[in-house]
Amino acid sequence: MLKVNDLSIGYGLSQVVHDINLELGKGEILGVMGRNGMGKTTLFKALIGLLPSWSGDIQMGGVELTGERPYRRVASGLAYVPQGRQVFATLTVEENIRTGLEATGQKKIPDDIYSLFPVLQEMRKRRAGNLSGGQQQQLAIARALAAEPDVLLLDEPTEGIQPSIIKDMAKTLREIRQVRNISILFSEQVLSFAMDVSDRVLVMDRGKLVDEMQGEELSEATMAKYLSV
Protein backbone atom coordinates (compact mmCIF):
# COMPACT_ATOMS: atom_id res chain seq x y z
CA MET A 1 0.00 0.00 0.00
CA LEU A 2 2.52 2.57 1.22
CA LYS A 3 6.04 2.50 -0.15
CA VAL A 4 8.87 4.79 0.96
CA ASN A 5 12.16 4.85 -0.94
CA ASP A 6 15.42 6.41 0.31
CA LEU A 7 13.60 9.15 2.25
CA SER A 8 15.82 11.78 3.89
CA ILE A 9 14.48 14.66 5.97
CA GLY A 10 16.03 17.49 7.96
CA TYR A 11 15.61 20.89 9.54
CA GLY A 12 17.73 23.76 8.23
CA LEU A 13 21.15 22.27 7.59
CA SER A 14 20.88 19.31 9.93
CA GLN A 15 19.69 16.00 8.56
CA VAL A 16 17.46 14.13 10.99
CA VAL A 17 16.20 11.14 9.01
CA HIS A 18 18.51 9.17 6.71
CA ASP A 19 17.55 7.05 3.68
CA ILE A 20 14.42 5.38 5.02
CA ASN A 21 13.03 2.47 3.02
CA LEU A 22 9.83 0.80 4.10
CA GLU A 23 6.88 -0.98 2.61
CA LEU A 24 3.54 -1.45 4.30
CA GLY A 25 1.36 -4.30 3.06
CA LYS A 26 -2.43 -4.33 2.73
CA GLY A 27 -4.00 -4.88 6.16
CA GLU A 28 -0.60 -4.93 7.88
CA ILE A 29 0.09 -3.26 11.25
CA LEU A 30 3.67 -2.03 11.24
CA GLY A 31 5.36 -0.33 14.17
CA VAL A 32 8.34 2.03 14.15
CA MET A 33 10.00 1.79 17.55
CA GLY A 34 12.67 4.05 18.99
CA ARG A 35 13.59 6.35 21.84
CA ASN A 36 12.78 10.08 21.95
CA GLY A 37 14.62 12.19 19.40
CA MET A 38 15.36 9.32 17.01
CA GLY A 39 13.35 10.91 14.15
CA LYS A 40 10.02 9.05 14.37
CA THR A 41 7.82 12.16 14.46
CA THR A 42 9.90 13.80 11.73
CA LEU A 43 9.35 10.73 9.55
CA PHE A 44 5.58 10.73 10.15
CA LYS A 45 5.30 14.47 9.47
CA ALA A 46 7.11 14.00 6.19
CA LEU A 47 4.85 11.08 5.25
CA ILE A 48 1.71 13.22 5.63
CA GLY A 49 3.42 16.23 4.01
CA LEU A 50 3.78 18.59 6.98
CA LEU A 51 7.55 18.56 6.47
CA PRO A 52 9.25 18.58 3.07
CA SER A 53 11.57 15.70 2.34
CA TRP A 54 15.13 16.35 1.17
CA SER A 55 15.25 13.38 -1.14
CA GLY A 56 13.55 10.06 -1.82
CA ASP A 57 9.92 9.39 -2.63
CA ILE A 58 6.63 8.30 -1.08
CA GLN A 59 4.04 6.26 -2.99
CA MET A 60 0.52 5.09 -2.17
CA GLY A 61 -0.78 2.23 -4.29
CA GLY A 62 1.72 3.18 -6.97
CA VAL A 63 0.70 6.87 -6.94
CA GLU A 64 3.50 9.34 -6.27
CA LEU A 65 2.79 11.54 -3.23
CA THR A 66 6.15 13.26 -2.81
CA GLY A 67 5.72 17.04 -2.99
CA GLU A 68 1.92 16.85 -2.63
CA ARG A 69 0.25 19.01 0.03
CA PRO A 70 -1.12 17.22 3.12
CA TYR A 71 -4.81 17.54 2.14
CA ARG A 72 -4.09 15.91 -1.24
CA ARG A 73 -2.31 13.02 0.50
CA VAL A 74 -5.39 12.53 2.70
CA ALA A 75 -7.54 12.45 -0.45
CA SER A 76 -5.17 9.77 -1.81
CA GLY A 77 -5.89 7.50 1.16
CA LEU A 78 -3.44 8.47 3.91
CA ALA A 79 -4.77 9.63 7.28
CA TYR A 80 -2.76 10.98 10.18
CA VAL A 81 -3.15 10.98 13.96
CA PRO A 82 -0.44 13.28 15.31
CA GLN A 83 1.58 13.04 18.48
CA GLY A 84 -0.30 14.95 21.18
CA ARG A 85 -3.62 14.36 19.37
CA GLN A 86 -4.18 17.97 18.26
CA VAL A 87 -7.96 17.83 18.17
CA PHE A 88 -9.68 21.13 17.40
CA ALA A 89 -10.37 22.16 20.99
CA THR A 90 -13.21 24.65 20.45
CA LEU A 91 -15.06 22.50 17.91
CA THR A 92 -17.51 19.90 19.15
CA VAL A 93 -16.69 16.20 19.00
CA GLU A 94 -19.03 15.77 16.03
CA GLU A 95 -17.52 18.75 14.20
CA ASN A 96 -14.04 17.34 14.76
CA ILE A 97 -15.11 14.07 13.13
CA ARG A 98 -16.76 15.99 10.30
CA THR A 99 -13.48 17.73 9.45
CA GLY A 100 -12.30 14.29 8.41
CA LEU A 101 -15.14 14.06 5.86
CA GLU A 102 -13.63 16.94 3.88
CA ALA A 103 -11.23 14.58 2.11
CA THR A 104 -14.04 12.44 0.66
CA GLY A 105 -16.74 15.10 0.32
CA GLN A 106 -19.17 12.76 2.15
CA LYS A 107 -21.87 14.34 4.31
CA LYS A 108 -22.58 11.44 6.65
CA ILE A 109 -20.24 10.19 9.38
CA PRO A 110 -19.47 6.49 8.61
CA ASP A 111 -21.60 4.18 10.81
CA ASP A 112 -18.67 2.21 12.20
CA ILE A 113 -17.05 5.24 13.85
CA TYR A 114 -19.52 5.52 16.70
CA SER A 115 -19.61 1.74 17.13
CA LEU A 116 -15.79 1.70 17.43
CA PHE A 117 -15.85 4.66 19.83
CA PRO A 118 -19.25 4.68 21.64
CA VAL A 119 -18.06 7.34 24.11
CA LEU A 120 -17.76 9.83 21.25
CA GLN A 121 -21.44 9.39 20.40
CA GLU A 122 -22.40 10.21 23.98
CA MET A 123 -20.17 13.27 23.90
CA ARG A 124 -20.77 14.40 20.34
CA LYS A 125 -22.08 17.84 21.34
CA ARG A 126 -19.25 18.52 23.82
CA ARG A 127 -16.26 20.67 22.91
CA ALA A 128 -13.26 18.50 22.12
CA GLY A 129 -11.06 20.58 24.44
CA ASN A 130 -13.11 19.40 27.41
CA LEU A 131 -12.48 15.68 26.80
CA SER A 132 -9.92 13.64 28.74
CA GLY A 133 -6.62 12.66 27.10
CA GLY A 134 -7.82 9.15 26.29
CA GLN A 135 -11.09 10.43 24.82
CA GLN A 136 -9.20 13.00 22.75
CA GLN A 137 -7.01 10.21 21.38
CA GLN A 138 -10.11 8.26 20.37
CA LEU A 139 -11.46 11.41 18.73
CA ALA A 140 -8.22 11.98 16.81
CA ILE A 141 -8.41 8.40 15.48
CA ALA A 142 -12.12 8.78 14.64
CA ARG A 143 -11.37 12.02 12.78
CA ALA A 144 -8.72 10.24 10.73
CA LEU A 145 -11.04 7.27 10.02
CA ALA A 146 -13.79 9.63 8.78
CA ALA A 147 -11.56 10.24 5.73
CA GLU A 148 -11.98 6.52 4.83
CA PRO A 149 -8.22 5.96 4.55
CA ASP A 150 -6.35 2.96 3.17
CA VAL A 151 -3.41 3.68 5.47
CA LEU A 152 -3.64 5.08 9.00
CA LEU A 153 -0.55 6.83 10.41
CA LEU A 154 -0.42 7.03 14.23
CA ASP A 155 2.39 8.97 15.84
CA GLU A 156 2.97 7.76 19.43
CA PRO A 157 -0.70 6.98 20.15
CA THR A 158 -0.06 6.02 23.78
CA GLU A 159 1.71 9.22 24.79
CA GLY A 160 0.12 10.61 27.95
CA ILE A 161 -2.50 7.84 28.13
CA GLN A 162 -3.02 5.76 31.27
CA PRO A 163 -2.03 2.04 31.09
CA SER A 164 -5.56 0.58 31.27
CA ILE A 165 -6.64 2.72 28.30
CA ILE A 166 -3.52 1.69 26.36
CA LYS A 167 -4.78 -1.92 26.49
CA ASP A 168 -8.17 -0.82 25.14
CA MET A 169 -6.50 1.19 22.41
CA ALA A 170 -4.53 -1.85 21.21
CA LYS A 171 -7.79 -3.80 21.04
CA THR A 172 -9.48 -0.97 19.11
CA LEU A 173 -6.64 -0.81 16.56
CA ARG A 174 -6.98 -4.52 15.84
CA GLU A 175 -10.74 -4.01 15.52
CA ILE A 176 -10.21 -1.13 13.08
CA ARG A 177 -8.00 -3.32 10.92
CA GLN A 178 -10.63 -6.02 10.95
CA VAL A 179 -13.62 -3.74 10.24
CA ARG A 180 -11.97 -1.50 7.66
CA ASN A 181 -9.31 -3.85 6.26
CA ILE A 182 -6.80 -1.00 6.30
CA SER A 183 -3.05 -0.83 6.94
CA ILE A 184 -1.69 0.87 10.04
CA LEU A 185 1.74 2.42 10.54
CA PHE A 186 2.47 3.62 14.06
CA SER A 187 5.44 4.96 15.99
CA GLU A 188 5.84 3.94 19.61
CA GLN A 189 8.07 3.66 22.67
CA VAL A 190 5.73 1.53 24.80
CA LEU A 191 6.83 -2.04 24.16
CA SER A 192 3.73 -3.75 25.59
CA PHE A 193 1.49 -1.83 23.17
CA ALA A 194 3.70 -2.71 20.20
CA MET A 195 3.72 -6.37 21.27
CA ASP A 196 -0.09 -6.30 21.46
CA VAL A 197 -0.76 -4.95 17.98
CA SER A 198 2.21 -5.25 15.60
CA ASP A 199 2.59 -7.76 12.80
CA ARG A 200 6.08 -6.42 12.23
CA VAL A 201 8.33 -3.78 13.80
CA LEU A 202 11.08 -1.54 12.43
CA VAL A 203 13.57 -0.06 14.87
CA MET A 204 14.70 3.52 14.41
CA ASP A 205 17.94 4.79 15.90
CA ARG A 206 19.53 8.20 15.22
CA GLY A 207 17.41 8.76 12.13
CA LYS A 208 18.06 5.36 10.54
CA LEU A 209 16.12 2.11 10.40
CA VAL A 210 18.56 -0.28 12.05
CA ASP A 211 16.59 -3.45 12.71
CA GLU A 212 13.44 -5.30 11.73
CA MET A 213 11.59 -8.05 13.55
CA GLN A 214 8.25 -9.85 13.40
CA GLY A 215 5.66 -9.11 16.08
CA GLU A 216 6.22 -12.42 17.83
CA GLU A 217 9.97 -11.73 18.09
CA LEU A 218 9.36 -8.61 20.17
CA SER A 219 10.43 -8.87 23.79
CA GLU A 220 12.17 -6.83 26.45
CA ALA A 221 15.32 -8.76 25.69
CA THR A 222 15.32 -8.09 21.94
CA MET A 223 14.40 -4.40 22.35
CA ALA A 224 16.51 -3.54 25.43
CA LYS A 225 19.35 -1.97 23.47
CA TYR A 226 16.95 0.24 21.47
CA LEU A 227 14.51 1.34 24.18
CA SER A 228 14.83 2.30 27.84
CA VAL A 229 13.14 -0.91 29.00
Binding site: L50, Y71, F88, T90, T99
Partner: peptide, 14 residues
Protein backbone atom coordinates in the same frame (compact mmCIF):
# COMPACT_ATOMS: atom_id res chain seq x y z
CA UNK B 1 -12.77 27.43 12.67
CA UNK B 2 -10.58 24.36 12.33
CA UNK B 3 -8.15 26.09 9.97
CA UNK B 4 -7.76 29.15 12.17
CA UNK B 5 -7.28 26.99 15.25
CA UNK B 6 -4.59 24.74 13.81
CA UNK B 7 -3.76 25.38 10.16
CA UNK B 8 -1.26 22.51 9.79
CA UNK B 9 -3.58 19.95 11.38
CA UNK B 10 -6.59 21.13 9.36
CA UNK B 11 -4.53 20.53 6.22
CA UNK B 12 -3.50 17.12 7.53
CA UNK B 13 -7.13 16.04 8.05
CA UNK B 14 -7.95 16.87 4.44
Amino acid sequence: RSTTQNRAMANAVG
